[in-house]
Computed example of a mutant assay.
Amino acid sequence: MASNLKSAKDLVVFLGKSVIAFLESMVFTIIPKPRKNVAGEIVLITGAGSGLGRLLALRFARLGSVLVLWDINKEGNEDTCRMAREAGATRVYAYTCDCSQREDIYRVAEQVKKEVGDISILINNAGIVTGKNFLDCPDELMEKALDVNFKAHLWTCKSFLPAMIANNHGHLVCISSSAGLVGISKLADYCASKFAALGFAESIFAETVVQKLNGIKTTIVCPFFINTGMFEGCSTVRPFLLPVLEPEYVVDKIVDAILQEKVYLYVPRFISFVMFLKSILPVKVSLLVADYMGALNIMDGFVGKNKKE
């Protein structure tokens, strides 16, 4: 009898929490969440020397954050550092770091902790793409894609998550991709790395929930292809559904999602509908839909080689 009462109580509590969470979600769909203040927060951005990383740095500079910029390209990273200061940042630190190398990440992370302090917002943004058919892709390039696009997330989180847990304060941001949701021709290694990054971010989010670390937030970003030069030459046959995105627009969405502490961000929103179709349609039908939208062959015009974000 006691066990039955406990089971009934657990069910009632579960249903009550579910209803509250659903209603909260509906309310914040209509009324945007209040945005948190990130002035003074120490924000680390990987791949800050160009593209999204640079634009994110400039946005957080204007918000008064302390910036820690990582990139393998020292010159590009220092340019971002200078631009961030011009945008209003008073404390900016640039570090040359090869995010494909675990020991380099650990080394630079220790240097950051000594020279700057504990990271409170970690944005794993660095990424590369090869853009070849799987059998044409050299082993070393596939390994590097996995190292930069996925494994770097493991090592940066191992470096900075302990302090977040100790303080019950922090924000983990995973820049994944729509290619982390759906397989795409000529992106086997890239899709694998982005799927892995998304799965890892979701798992760490689940751990913080189970451990009741309510002060540690997670944001997982899945944008469609962005006009940063990384996917130069790519185009979409249905731009009214899935346009190649302008980086400034995507950065606005990412920063807004971080400030509102959203867990998931799909850009454009149509990707949410694509995922819904993928989950309910037969495989052959979903492939026909993807082919109609041009998602399967978007890499046909790709002209880059080992491009980086």
Rank of each mutant, 00 (worst) to 15 (best):
V92Q: 13
G301C: 11
A290E: 12
M299F: 08
I20S: 07
N133L: 15
M275N: 06
V210K: 11
I30Q: 04
V108E: 09
E207Y: 04
K278L: 01
F60T: 05
V285D: 03
Y95L: 07
G127N: 04
F270W: 02
F225G: 00
F231M: 08
K74G: 01
M26H: 02
L122G: 06
L55G: 11
E110Q: 11
A201Y: 01
V221K: 01
D79Q: 13
A197N: 02
C99G: 02
F276D: 03
T80F: 03
K262Y: 05
G229F: 01
L5Y: 07
F195K: 02
W70V: 09
A166E: 15
M26L: 11
F240V: 03
A163S: 15
V263L: 15
S203A: 11
R91W: 04
A290R: 14
L265Y: 10
V27F: 08
K194W: 03
A57W: 02
L141H: 07
N214Y: 05
N167W: 00
N227I: 01
G301E: 12
V68P: 11
M293R: 00
D10Q: 14
F22N: 13
A48G: 09
D136Y: 05
I31P: 04
L259V: 13
W155F: 08
G304L: 15
D256L: 13
N124I: 06
N73Y: 08
C137P: 02
E41C: 10
V13Q: 12
M293I: 10
L122V: 06
T130K: 06
G301W: 07
L259G: 10
